[in-house]
Design a protein around this nucleic acid. Structure first.
Lengths: 247, 247
DNA sequence: ACAAAAGTGTTATGTCTACACCCATGG
DNA sequence: CCATGGGTGTAGACATAACACTTTTGT
């Protein structure tokens, strides 16, 4: 018998999480390996009957990387009828393990893409019967992914880069107290380009989502930079309303 | 017997279209009345097995208002487990008509929201066994909607207002040839505020998505305004990449 | 000829970019 | 004491907002 059947989940809909991890100026994506194959997949899952999509996504994050209260953003829906043809070795694996009814994997799927941003060193990964390995892969080195997961990742990145111009970014990515240069390197990593140090400060400060603290980062070479923290209220406000009200 | 069963569609997922209509400086939404009730609904439907969400949305637009090639944008997914409790009078109606299996309407639904923008005078509406009336309602006068359709409409409007600051707007809304004042009143209607005539022209021209024609609108009172048309290539380009690359 | 609407121009203000300069710190 | 990175200031380019003036047309 199988543990989970069509009775417990909403059939034909899955959630896939593009978990971006940032650390030491590298933007990476979290992928799971299907045991016994060389195929990699985004952590995903089904939506239990009494949960919203956001809750389903939060559950996956909690299960897989042990983190709660991470900002998750729905960015697209993937509904191409051709998208859900799993490779035979995956179906074999499902059958062998027998947690899910194989029919669940064989029918057509619509997947809702969510993305999260976090510091990947904060994370403890948890594996399961399907995956005996996981890895963080640099965003431009993703390969051997199942189904359309590569496309999902690309779309997530594109969305992230667009969003960064009118939405605050960084809450789960930076330590509670951080410096302006750290913030900047986050932006540079996401955007994939260098920014002017001085103009960055001004612009970021103008957004009014940071509190400048009376402390400096200690023990670093050269001049000690000031520490900042997020201004919770203004950050949330900005998440709702965005920055660039062009009209 | 019923015409359409769970076999033909993807269960538990529906598509709801927020069709914004613009005409004579009014922004309206297209709603259908459920026959014999005072309840109104967004035109929506299920996703047939071999179609994408966008195709499902396009089918609904074609069926209901007879238009093809309308720009449809997916803007959110509505997945609250409590959202799908239909009013008893609706279930009665479904049973009476018997096109769909009632169980389809009783199970939990996730709905994908799409929005479209068009000139509502271009439209011939088509009714069916469920709806014997339809109407265009001013955006701030929507009431007696089923389920969470009011929330869906509000979210669509919010998205539209956000998008308008970094995306071109107007392709399906204005006649093929239109004047700058017409374009402006479209913007003013969507945004719900007045804009400066002269600054609007400059800014709009700077976007470089319009071709100024050598003709003027004739037969109007006062000075005849120049006609413009969309520059297809640049418009599409702008749809992809947006305007405000703030970083 | 005049009111109303459209087109063009100007000026003040604000924002962005690209720097120059100064400050603090570890080696 | 100097190389390196951080903080502040500023001039020029560019964009935006507010408003004056001219042009066109139906009545």
């Amino acid at each position: 018998m199988t543990d989970i059947t069509n009775q417990d989940i909403i059939p034909n809909i899955s959630v896939d999480c593009v978990i971006f991890g940032f650390h030491e100026n590298e933007l990476k994506v979290f992928l799971l390996n299907y045991t016994g194959t060389n195929l990699w997949a985004l952590p995903g899952g089904f939506i239990e009957k009494n949960k919203t999509i956001e809750e389903a996504g939060a559950d996956i994050l909690k299960e897989r990387i042990g983190l709660e209260n991470i900002f998750l953003k729905q960015f697209d829906v993937f509904s191409n009828p051709e998208r859900s043809k799993h490779a035979p070795e995956i179906l074999e694996l499902i059958k062998k393990i027998g947690r899910y009814d194989v029919s669940v994997f064989q029918s057509r799927f619509i997947s809702i893409g969510l993305y999260a941003l976090l510091d990947h060193t904060k994370v403890t990964t948890t594996l399961d019967r399907y995956s005996d390995k996981s890895k963080w892969v640099a965003i431009d080195k993703v390969k051997n992914t199942i189904l359309d997961h590569k496309e999902i990742i690309n779309t997530a990145l594109k969305t992230l880069r667009l969003q960064i111009s009118y939405t605050p970014i960084g809450y789960n990515l930076l330590p509670q107290k951080f410096t302006m240069p750290e913030m900047q390197s986050l932006y540079e990593t996401i955007l994939g380009k260098k920014l002017d140090r001085r103009n960055f400060q001004r612009k970021m400060n103008a957004y009014n989502i940071l509190n400048k603290l009376d402390e400096k980062r200690e023990g670093v070479a050269h001049k000690a930079p000031f520490l900042y923290e997020f201004n919770q209220e203004n950050y949330k406000e900005a998440l709702k309303n965005g920055f660039n009200n062009s009209w």
